[in-house]
Computed example of a mutant assay.
Amino acid sequence: MKINEYLLERGESPVPLNDSSHYRVTSGEIFYDSHFLKQLRLETLRAQRSKSTLSLILLTLDKEADVKSINMNEILGIIREKTRDTDMSGFVNHNAICVLLPDTDEAGAKAICAKLANENSPFSMTTSSYPDHIFESLTKNGYVRPDAFPFELWDSGGLIDASWFKPLLKRGLDVVGSIFGIFIFMPVMLITALAIKVTSPGPVIFSQIRLGKQGTPFTFYKFRSMHVNMDNQIHREYVQDFIKGNHAKVNQGDTEKPLYKIKSDPRITRVGKFIRKTSIDELPQFFNVLKGNMSLVGPRPPLAYEAEKYQAWHLRRILEMKPGITGLWQVEGRSKTEWNDSVRLDIRYIQNWSLLYDLKILLRTVKEVLKCRGAM
């Protein structure tokens, strides 16, 4: 159905043919306002760089509301009259309007929300602040709540409807690749499991809660390389210093050949040292990929206490893309790369990813693993 036909059926004024800032039609449905979402993306990136707070108000039409009697264009006009000149508003879909509030914290967003409030309003309102709500959720819950930001911020593949096949291709590669990996490496995994069981008490598989795309928690698998019931304080302190950029404190190498990894970790078993150096400990993650928690290629999934220490711009590596077993950082940086540079590599991958790019990284990963470069 054409957009103007849809509006006329509802008794609303048609949108001018040259006006693409209101609605975008996809498969017969009123869909996202691409112009508004592009602006949201730009403002989010600006907030990251300037370390300012970005807030939004999401007005969603109540289910009980009489849709045919509501003129969404008229409501959008009223919202624009009641908000500041620097604020931006637009349609998210046929029953939701979003108001974007640059340089505004949660208190400011609630004040504007109060101005928009109306007893007879058919909308429910939600406010959120970036990145405050994300960090608050990480600190309180150990993960990013789904409502920490009301909808997905970025569309790293361009227009949403035009790039639906790209994630599908990536998922296809993940499924085929993980099944192939499980089949090929099954003998190695069985031998590793036996070696771990014989040499140290405890489970063969080490499971841990990590953060996936948009900060969603999932159970992450590795072969156990440490003694059981070990305190993680060593790693917590190291990660905190690493992310803060205390290079002199965390560099386990020298100035010419830096090594950003705990070199002599007393928690690691004898078998653990070998399977870490050869990256065999990562093989169970093929099951994470098969389940859909991870991808073959992507940023590494962080622990919650790591993500708590992030700066706002670091969040892109967990919000925009599914984490991977390997990635651009592993093949270009590995353990010699400083934290900020490793995040830049992840962001570069997110911005440029394609099926061919994934295949190239996978081939380079095989080369790096065979060299045991940067592994400890």
Rank of each mutant, 00 (worst) to 15 (best):
E5R: 13
Y6L: 04
Y6V: 01
R10S: 09
E12W: 12
P14T: 10
P16M: 12
P16S: 11
N18W: 09
D19I: 04
H22G: 06
T26F: 12
T26R: 15
T26W: 15
G28I: 08
F31Q: 09
Y32M: 09
Q39P: 00
L40D: 07
L45A: 10
R46E: 12
A47C: 12
S52F: 01
L54G: 04
I57D: 04
L59R: 10
L61V: 11
D66E: 13
V67H: 07
S69H: 04
I70W: 01
N73W: 11
G77M: 08
T86D: 02
M88F: 07
F91N: 06
F91M: 12
F91D: 00
V92F: 11
H94F: 09
N95D: 15
P102G: 11
D103I: 00
D103W: 01
K110Q: 14
A111S: 15
I112N: 06
C113M: 15
A117V: 00
N118C: 13
P122K: 10
S124C: 11
T126E: 12
S128W: 02
S128R: 08
S129G: 03
H133V: 02
H133R: 03
I134Q: 08
N141G: 02
R145N: 13
F151P: 01
S156N: 15
S156P: 14
L159Q: 09
A162T: 13
P167G: 08
K170W: 02
D174F: 04
D174K: 05
V175G: 02
G177R: 04
G177L: 05
G181F: 07
I182Y: 09
F183H: 01
F183N: 02
F185N: 02
F185V: 04
F185C: 11
P187Q: 06
L194Y: 05
S200Q: 04
Q208N: 11
L211S: 05
K213D: 00
K213G: 00
K222T: 14
K222F: 13
R224W: 06
V228A: 15
D231A: 10
Q233E: 11
R236Y: 14
R236Q: 15
V239A: 14
F242N: 04
G245I: 08
A248T: 07
N251V: 01
E256L: 14
E256W: 02
K261G: 02
K261C: 05
K263C: 05
P266W: 00
T269N: 01
V271E: 09
I275R: 10
I280M: 07
N288A: 02
L290A: 07
L290G: 03
K291I: 06
N293E: 15
M294I: 07
S295G: 11
V297C: 03
A304R: 09
E306T: 07
H314Q: 03
I318Q: 03
L319G: 02
L319P: 13
M321F: 08
I325G: 03
G327Q: 09
G327C: 06
G327A: 04
L328S: 10
Q330H: 01
V331E: 10
S335T: 07
T337C: 12
N340C: 10
S342V: 14
V343M: 08
V343I: 13
R344N: 12
L345F: 14
Y349L: 14
N352I: 06
Y357V: 10
D358Y: 07
I361S: 06
L362I: 14
L363W: 13
T365G: 04
V369K: 05
R373A: 15
